[in-house]
Amino acid sequence: MKRLIHRKIETWLILLAAKILIGRNVQRSAVVSRRDNNDMWAMAEKLEAIAKRISKNYP
């Protein structure tokens, strides 16, 4: 039971990080370059995939 709770909390934190990265996605910004913006979007997608695998206990 403890492992399940730990896995769910870890998944939630990873998804939170992904949401923060996707939330930084902006059309045009004087602060964030287009390349960095695209990199953040790609990182968020990778984090979501990792969270999915963790929540399913790496099937």
Score class of each variant (00 low, 15 high):
Met1Trp: 02
Met1His: 08
Met1Thr: 05
Met1Ile: 06
Lys2Thr: 02
Lys2Gln: 03
Arg3Glu: 02
Arg3Tyr: 00
Leu4Ala: 08
Leu4Thr: 00
Ile5His: 10
His6Gly: 05
Arg7Thr: 04
Ile9Glu: 13
Ile9Ala: 08
Ile9Gln: 13
Ile9Val: 12
Ile9Pro: 01
Glu10Ala: 13
Glu10Asp: 14
Glu10Asn: 15
Thr11Trp: 01
Thr11His: 05
Thr11Arg: 12
Thr11Lys: 13
Thr11Ala: 09
Thr11Leu: 06
Trp12Ala: 12
Trp12Ser: 09
Trp12Cys: 07
Leu13Arg: 11
Ile14Gly: 05
Ile14Ala: 12
Ile14Leu: 15
Ile14His: 12
Leu15Pro: 03
Leu15Ile: 05
Leu16Asp: 10
Leu16Cys: 10
Leu16Gly: 11
Ala17Arg: 04
Ala17Met: 05
Ala17Lys: 02
Ala17Val: 01
Ala18Tyr: 01
Ala18Ser: 07
Lys19Thr: 05
Ile20Ala: 06
Ile20Asn: 06
Leu21Pro: 00
Ile22Pro: 02
Ile22Val: 06
Gly23Pro: 03
Gly23Ile: 04
Arg24Phe: 09
Arg24Tyr: 08
Arg24Glu: 12
Asn25Arg: 13
Asn25Pro: 01
Arg28His: 13
Arg28Ala: 08
Ser29Thr: 07
Ala30Cys: 13
Val31His: 08
Val31Asp: 06
Val32Asp: 06
Val32Leu: 11
Val32Trp: 02
Val32Gly: 04
Val32Ile: 10
Ser33Cys: 08
Arg34His: 13
Arg34Trp: 12
Arg34Ala: 15
Arg35Trp: 00
Arg35Ser: 07
Arg35Thr: 01
Asp36Gly: 05
Asp36Asn: 14
Asp36Tyr: 09
Asp36Ile: 09
Asp36Pro: 02
Asn37Met: 01
Asn38Gly: 08
Asn38Lys: 10
Asn38Ser: 12
Asp39Thr: 10
Met40Ser: 10
Met40Ile: 06
Met40Lys: 14
Met40Pro: 02
Trp41Gln: 06
Ala42Ser: 14
Ala42Trp: 05
Ala42Lys: 15
Ala42Pro: 03
Ala42Tyr: 07
Met43Glu: 07
Met43Val: 00
Ala44His: 00
Glu45His: 14
Glu45Ala: 11
Glu45Met: 15
Glu45Trp: 13
Glu45Leu: 15
Lys46Phe: 01
Lys46Cys: 05
Leu47Val: 05
Leu47Gly: 02
Leu47Pro: 01
Leu47Ile: 03
Glu48Gln: 02
Glu48Met: 06
Glu48Cys: 02
Ala49Pro: 05
Ala51Gln: 04
Ala51Pro: 00
Lys52Tyr: 04
Arg53Cys: 03
Arg53Ser: 06
Arg53Ile: 03
Arg53Pro: 06
Arg53His: 07
Arg53Asn: 09
Ile54Leu: 14
Ile54Gly: 02
Ile54Lys: 14
Ile54Pro: 04
Ser55Asn: 04
Ser55Lys: 03
Ser55Met: 08
Lys56Trp: 00
Lys56Ala: 14
Lys56Asp: 09
Asn57Asp: 12
Asn57Glu: 08
Asn57Met: 08
Tyr58Asp: 11
Tyr58Pro: 00
Pro59Gly: 11
Pro59Gln: 12
